[in-house]
């Protein structure tokens, strides 16, 4: 399990495969009642179970096998990630509503247009999110889950240098304040891709970001700090 959206897909797949499995077993019961030999019954069952299992395998199996993934999530983890993802999505809905009222920024904009759009976007979202506070998106449960994923990633012997690079980034002075802009004069520390693959995938408008040991959730277009989590890095 690495993303909420994967979770959703996987959830629907599982549901589908449960249906397939149930139909298969019903079919087997019918077959059994017709006195089919025990051997054929077992063979058919095995084939159908294998087919059902194939439905659960992600389509992108070749890639999935190579990429590091977190250990299979429990039902509680799935629930936690689903809540986290729903809150992130709710924010995206809000910020999209704000952005839709602004003059659209084209992909061939001038620096002036980029700056004024960012400013208006930032102010619009700040107003719409007055009262936002730490933990609104990084819920307690999400925080625990993310910390566990981060801890697992940094277990490796070669991860010390990565941690050092994160801590070494020029991020001093970044305010740990929800609804405040991430200063554009400050460095954006790279998040190890191996870690990103463990964390719940965010909507494309949002990014995780480290500031020293703390993890921030950022809207990468208006630059606002949406939430933060203290001492996320072990």
């Amino acid at each position: 399990m690495s993303t909420h959206f994967q979770q959703e897909t996987r959830g629907s797949r599982s549901k589908g495969s449960r249906v397939t499995l149930a139909s298969a077993l019903q079919f087997q019961i019918v077959m059994k009642s017709k006195s089919v030999s025990k051997f054929r019954y077992l063979l058919n069952t095995a084939c159908l179970l294998a087919s059902a299992a194939l439905c659960i395998v992600p389509a992108n199996v070749a890639l999935a096998q190579k990429l590091p993934t977190s250990s299979p999530a429990s039902a509680a983890d799935r629930n936690t990630v689903a809540i986290f993802a729903a809150r992130a999505k709710a924010y995206v809905k809000l910020r999209n509503r704000v952005e839709s009222k602004l003059q659209k920024l084209s992909k061939d904009s001038t620096p002036e247009q980029i700056a004024s759009h960012k400013k208006a976007f930032e102010e619009g979202v700040r107003t719409a999110r007055v009262g936002a506070k730490p933990g609104d998106i990084f819920t307690t449960g999400a925080g625990e889950y993310l910390r566990r994923m981060i801890r697992n990633e940094f277990k490796g012997q070669d991860r010390g240098e990565v941690k050092e690079a994160i801590l070494d980034a020029e991020t001093s002075g970044v305010p740990l304040k929800v609804n405040y802009p991430y200063p554009e004069t400050k460095e954006v520390s790279a998040i190890p891709p191996t870690l990103l693959l463990r964390l719940p995938e965010l909507p494309k408008e949002l990014n995780y970001r480290f500031v020293r040991r703390h993890m921030l959730l950022i809207d990468k277009e208006n630059g606002l700090i949406l939430d933060y989590m203290l001492n996320a890095l072990p």
Binding site: L105, P111, K118, E184, S189, A190
Partner: peptide, 18 residues
Amino acid sequence: GNHDQTTQVNYEPFNMNG
């Protein structure tokens, strides 16, 4: 890079097409 804001993707001379 790590010193760049994502908003650069909309800057025409960088040809990133958003």
